[in-house]
Amino acid sequence: MNTTLLLVGILVLAVGTFSLRLAGPWMRTRFELPERAQQVMAVAAVVLLAALVATAALTDGHGGAGIARPAGVLVGGVLAWRKAPFVLVVVAAAATAAGLRLLGVP
């Protein structure tokens, strides 16, 4: 494997990722945003996180994620909705998925 090319790839990914992360704060200091736009920015972050939840829970690569993982996330989601403690939400989600897999559910 070409080590130089690999190193360049890593560094470009690092600089690029850092720039993407810095872009938001940088733009916010350059341009004064109206209240309404600031509100939309916060909603945009929620929309992205929700879409991450949906895709991470239900898909794997370009296909489906099976049954165990969505079931685990569903259990965690219901517990969170019922205002269960955060730790319980996380542990229940993981335990459900792990338990189902132990039983042979994909």
């Binding site: 996180l49 939840v53 996330v73 965690g76 969170a80 955060f86 996380v90 989600a93 993981a94 897999r101």
Partner: peptide, 25 residues
């Protein structure tokens, strides 16, 4: 996946955004 961590991470984010989702819009 054996520990179900792939289910834990979406659940973490879901639990954290849920309060924001109480707003209908």
């Amino acid at each position: 996946d054996v520990f179900g961590l792939d289910a834990a991470f979406p659940a973490v984010l879901l639990a954290l955004v849920l309060p924001s989702l109480r707003d209908k819009k």
